[in-house]
């Protein structure tokens, strides 16, 4: 047999074996001991990596869950908004802990300054970025607190759950929302808030964040909260507070009694997914233009087609107008 061949085989074999031994010891030396439960926890997480939990991704959140579960013995303050109670219960099962059931939340757009309610006073041209427009000027409708309608919230949403309605210029949250909170941080005007979904998706909130006095606020937008305080007086549960000319309904105290909404002189208080009261039906429809109310119609409609989001939205709008 050829000697060169034997030499080559022998040399390569030797190099291979030596490298294998070195690699083995290096691997032993640098071995990272990791809690196997981290992998298990990560397995049950939704892997959306949305950051809604406040961590860099599902892996980081899994690490945090296992760490805190080991140290404190509870999972307070840690929650996967996408997976909700089911996933948290599974995680707690893996870690041998219990977790409190939390009410599901959803993103709520607190502005109703549609083209009809807050007519354009100037035209904006330039980069389609709410942050940029916010730094440049008060907004096309003139309201320095209102929605700019350039869709920063839409851009950051990983779940296709928010979209700008072309008819009103306002973002609309649909049922795909998992309450990750990305839009809440993206909005330069802090218009979007996470609120409890409520029973049967019923919610009442003030759809305005304008802190100006009544006069200027009303000048720019027909449905602005003017800080009159009528809703505060009528509320039997101390759920409504008035701060800086703006009413706010605390969702934890609100019992959804629906007394406040008819009191509001500008229609800034929105009721979602309630059966329409007979006597208010006409006025409600007059006040529309709001995407949120479009949502009301959609969600409450059982024969809703699950596909084609835009079709849904248009359907909602055409019902309204």
């Amino acid at each position: 047999m050829n000697v060169e061949l034997i030499y080559s085989v022998a040399t390569l074999g030797l190099i291979g074996s030596v490298s294998a031994v070195i690699l083995y010891f290096v691997a032993q030396k640098f071995k990272v001991i990791e809690d196997p439960r981290i992998d298990q926890v990560q397995e049950v997480l939704p892997s959306a990596n949305c950051g809604g939990c406040g961590f860099a991704g599902c892996r980081a959140f899994a690490e945090a869950l296992v760490m805190q579960g080991g140290e404190k013995g509870n999972l307070d303050g840690l929650k996967c908004p996408v997976g909700g109670n089911d996933v948290m219960a599974q995680v707690a099962g893996i870690l041998g802990l219990t977790v409190e059931q939390q009410d599901p939340v959803i993103a709520v757009v607190r502005c109703n300054g549609s083209f009809a309610n807050s007519p354009k006073k100037v035209i904006f041209e330039g980069a389609t970025s709410c942050v940029f427009a916010h730094n440049l000027f008060a907004g096309e409708g003139g309201c320095p607190y209102g929605c700019l309608g350039l869709g920063d919230c839409v851009k950051v949403c990983n779940f296709d759950a928010i979209d700008i309605d072309k008819a009103t210029g306002l973002p609309v949250v649909n049922e795909k929302c998992v309450a990750c909170g990305a839009c809440v941080t993206a909005c330069p005007r802090k218009i979007i808030e996470l609120r409890p979904k409520g029973k049967k998706d019923r919610r009442i909130f003030v759809s305005c964040v304008n802190q100006e006095k009544g006069g200027p606020a009303k000048k720019n937008c027909a449905v602005a909260c003017i800080g009159c305080g009528k809703c505060v007086k009528v509320c039997a549960f101390d759920a409504i507070t008035l701060l800086n000319n703006l009413a706010y309904i605390d969702p934890l105290k609100c019992r959804l009694c629906r007394k406040c909404a008819p009191e509001c002189p500008t229609g800034a208080i929105h009721e979602l997914n309630f059966p329409q009261k007979k006597e208010t039906l006409a006025t409600e429809i007059n006040k529309t233009g709001s995407r949120n109310e479009a949502l009301t119609e959609k969600v409450s409609e059982p024969a809703m087609t699950p596909d084609s989001k835009s079709g849904n939205n248009n359907g909602g709008i055409s019902n309204e107008t």
Binding site: K120, K121, V122, I123, F124, E125, L136, E140
Partner: peptide, 8 residues
């Protein structure tokens, strides 16, 4: 007519 607003 409406005025236009844009960045410089």
């Amino acid at each position: 007519n409406l005025l236009t607003v844009s960045g410089s």
